[in-house]
Simulated scan of single mutants.
Amino acid sequence: MSYLDKAKALEEYMVTMRRHFHQHPEKSMEERETTAFIMARLNEMGIPHRKLNPSGVVAEIPGGRPGKTVALRADMDALTIQEETGLPFASKAEGLMHACGHDLHMAGLLGAARLLWQERQSLGGNVRLIFQPGEEVGKGAKAVIEQGGMEGVDMVFGMHNMPSLPAGTVAGSKGPVFSAADYFKITIQGKAGHGATPEDAIDATVAASALVMNLQPLVSREISSLESLVITVGQLHSGTRFNIISGEAVLEGTVRSFDPAIHDMVPGAMERVVEGIARAYRVEAKLEYDKVAKACVNEEGFTDLCLRSAGKVAQVAPEGRQMIAEDFSEYMQLCPGAFFLYGSGCEYPLHSDHFAGDEQALITACAMYAQVAADALSQI
């Protein structure tokens, strides 16, 4: 029986797991109940594992023959979004939702764990299972690494669901697949005043607006049109009342790119724009800039192996690069790896309060995790 057929036989189990996770989402780096639930399921299977601090689980399936170790990773955290799906198994946690489909990821890896545990005597090496906290805040992969979760791993594989792809498909390519991501915050100090006498004030709102508009030419005029760069101001908070000129404004946003040289150029260029706007609008401005995640770059040989595995369990779809970021890239700094997408067929995008992935995607996730692990260990 193929891994796809074996995954289909576990559909009811995985749906039950997914619905439990979906009803009980937890914040990044606070996934304690999720951790306990996963550990209980691993105990039922008999799979050796250990808890990470403050949350997360690393488990090990020893093969029947000696060999190397391939790691499979699924992320655990939810988003601070109020769910509006109307599902009978909707989130029970106020203001929290698995809007990125990490419930699908965990349930798919638990299914693969069952398959691989049953098949362990045929494996020529070991399978490391990583249930990772804090992906949404870019801290979880580093926590796993710091606590020895990647020690002894020779190859690492991860996946993310993609609602724009139908269930039953897997997509991936060589080279950069997910972008690097940074966070920035700009604080502007002006001088508050009456809305009727702007000459007596220094308007932080006007300066903030100018900053939003003047950051965009960094994309359109300072890098090649053949390259990719995104600078998004996601939040702008300024003012306290309709007839008061704001004395302070705060902007927060993200930077995305694939090319390390471009990514390294951005902080200095942003600082130049911030200083220029501050002088032009008579305000004080401070830029805080943090690098969150490196680009995910699929290693060529392991990508070829994964594409062959995908062809055994799913329809392989062409898929270009994504400006979404993933801290899975931290693992890829330590050993060869690949990160793929699988279809979750939903009209709403990731991070939507209406996102609800097709549960048929669980079969693909389970089968792909198990297939790529078995194929990797049989070819090293």
Rank of each mutant, 00 (worst) to 15 (best):
G149A: 11
Q189E: 08
T205Y: 05
Y183M: 11
I130Q: 02
L211M: 15
A167T: 13
E136N: 07
E146K: 11
L129K: 04
V153D: 13
M106E: 04
E146G: 04
V212H: 04
H160L: 10
R114I: 06
Q189C: 00
E119V: 08
D182K: 11
A207G: 09
G138A: 05
G195R: 12
G125C: 06
R114W: 12
P133H: 04
P163W: 00
G193L: 03
T205P: 00
G152P: 05
G108V: 01
E135H: 05
W117K: 13
E119Y: 12
L115T: 08
V144M: 04
S179R: 00
K142P: 01
M213C: 14
G138I: 00
S209N: 10
V177A: 08
P163V: 05
P133I: 07
D203Y: 05
S173T: 14
N126A: 12
Q132C: 12
K191L: 15
A141Y: 01
N126M: 03
V170G: 12
M150K: 09
S122D: 14
E146F: 03
N126T: 12
A192L: 00
T197D: 13
A210K: 00
G124N: 15
G158A: 14
L116T: 11
D182G: 14
F131C: 07
L104M: 13
G125P: 02
I130N: 06
N161C: 11
P166K: 05
S164R: 15
F184P: 11
